[in-house]
């Protein structure tokens, strides 16, 4: 996945308009980074990688970049 695709995926998960997010954005600044978005991210990781995203990993995500990095592995 390119960085643009990852950001687009996250915008889709967070129900944001295309082009809203940039890599340096803090997730906590978005009210859309809510419990439902976190469940959607868990679902996406399971679908793409077949693994379960842990609550600790989710807590460690501070910026959009952190999530993009996770999808690198």
């Amino acid at each position: 996945m390119t960085i643009e695709e990852k950001i687009a995926m996250l915008e889709e998960i967070m129900d944001l308009d295309e082009g809203t997010l940039s890599v340096d954005d803090n997730l906590e600044d978005y009210e859309e980074w809510d419990s439902l978005s976190k469940l959607s991210l868990i679902a996406e990781v399971k679908k793409q990688f077949g693994k379960v995203l842990s609550t600790n990993s989710i807590r460690s995500f501070k910026t959009v970049q952190d999530i993009c990095d996770y999808f690198e592995d």
Binding site: S35, K38, L39, I42, A43, K46, V52, L53, S54, T55, I58
Partner: peptide
């Protein structure tokens, strides 16, 4: 614990 239950179900 919504996240915990979700992880439990899909795993």
């Amino acid at each position: 614990d919504g996240e915990g239950v979700f992880q439990f179900a899909i795993n």
